[in-house]
Simulated scan of single mutants.
Amino acid sequence: MSTPKIAIIIGSTRETRFADKPAAWLIEKAKELRSDLDFDLVDLRDFDLPLFDEPASNLWMPSQDPKAVAWQEKIAQYDGFIFLVAEYNHSITGALKNALDQAYKEWTKKPMTAFAYGSMGGARALEHLRAIAVELQMVPVRSALHLGGRDFFAVHPMGGNAPLSTVEDALVPSLTGMLEDFSWWVKATSAARASDAAKAA
C-alpha cells in the first residue's frame, strides 16, 4: 500500500490570521515524527470558495460551481485530515464551515483530528468541528493538539509573538500521541476503503 496522504487544512482565511505560524510548525514536526504518512498543507485561501449555493450536497447530486468541484477533487486525494482550528466566538471559522459543506463524499470514512488554538486552546471550536465531522461520516479521533492560555499568548502577535519553538516542549508530547492515534485510524480506514472498492469492482 502506498504512503497515506494527509491534508493539514488551514481553516482561517483572514489577512491577519495567526494560522500560518502553527501550520508551518505543525507540518515540520509531523514530517519529523511520522515517516509513514505524507503530509501536505492545504490552504483555504487558495480555493476562493463561494458560499454554499448548490441545489444539494454532492452526496445527492454533482456540484455545479467549478470552484466547489476543484475543492472536492483536491480533498478526494487525501486519506485523512488534520485541521488548523481557530476559535471564533466559541466555534470554527465561517470559512472552514463553508469548506466542509462544499463536499461530502470526499470526507467520508476518513479520520480527522486537529491542532486547535485560542485562549481556551480552541477546545469549544474543536467540539463543534467533531460534531460536523460525524455528520460527514468522518472518523474523529480522540487525541488532538491544543495551544491555549499562557503558551498561546506567548506566541501570538498580540502577545509575545515568540516562535512556536519556545513552547514546543509543552506541545510535542501531545502531538506525538495524536499522530500515533491518527496514524492507526488512517491505516485502518484506508484498508477498509480499499476492500470496499475491490468488492465493488
Rank of each mutant, 00 (worst) to 15 (best):
S2I: 12
T3F: 01
T3D: 00
P4V: 06
K5L: 02
I6K: 08
I6W: 15
I10Q: 09
G11Y: 06
E15R: 13
E15I: 10
E15H: 07
E15M: 02
T16R: 12
F18S: 01
A19W: 06
D20T: 09
D20F: 01
K21F: 01
P22G: 09
W25E: 04
W25G: 06
L26P: 04
L26A: 12
E28W: 01
E28N: 09
A30F: 13
A30C: 14
E32V: 13
E32W: 11
L33V: 09
L33P: 04
F39N: 04
V42I: 14
D46T: 00
F47V: 02
L49H: 01
L51R: 00
F52Y: 10
D53F: 01
E54C: 00
A56M: 03
S57D: 07
S57E: 06
W60R: 07
M61N: 12
D65Y: 09
P66D: 08
K67P: 07
A68L: 15
V69N: 02
A70I: 08
A70R: 14
Q72G: 13
E73F: 03
K74V: 00
A76N: 10
Y78D: 09
Y78F: 10
F81A: 02
I82G: 04
E87H: 11
Y88N: 04
N89E: 07
S91G: 13
I92G: 04
A95Y: 06
L96Q: 11
K97W: 03
K97P: 07
N98A: 10
A99M: 05
L100Y: 11
L100H: 00
A103G: 11
K109V: 08
P111Q: 10
M112A: 13
M112S: 13
G118P: 01
G118N: 13
G121T: 05
A123D: 07
L126Q: 14
L126F: 13
H128A: 09
H128W: 11
A131N: 09
A133I: 05
V134W: 07
E135F: 04
Q137I: 01
Q137W: 02
M138A: 09
V139K: 00
V141M: 08
R142Q: 12
S143D: 15
L145S: 09
L145R: 03
H146I: 04
H146T: 10
H146D: 04
L147T: 00
G148L: 14
R150I: 14
R150Y: 12
F152H: 14
F153T: 12
A154G: 08
A154F: 05
H156N: 14
H156L: 03
M158C: 03
G159L: 04
G160D: 09
N161E: 09
N161R: 10
A162I: 04
T166D: 15
V167L: 03
D169L: 08
A170D: 07
A170P: 02
L171H: 02
V172Y: 06
V172H: 03
P173E: 11
P173L: 12
S174T: 15
G177R: 01
G177W: 06
M178N: 11
M178T: 15
D181P: 08
F182R: 02
W185H: 13
W185R: 05
A188Q: 14
S190W: 01
R193A: 11
R193N: 12
R193K: 10
S195R: 15
A200I: 10
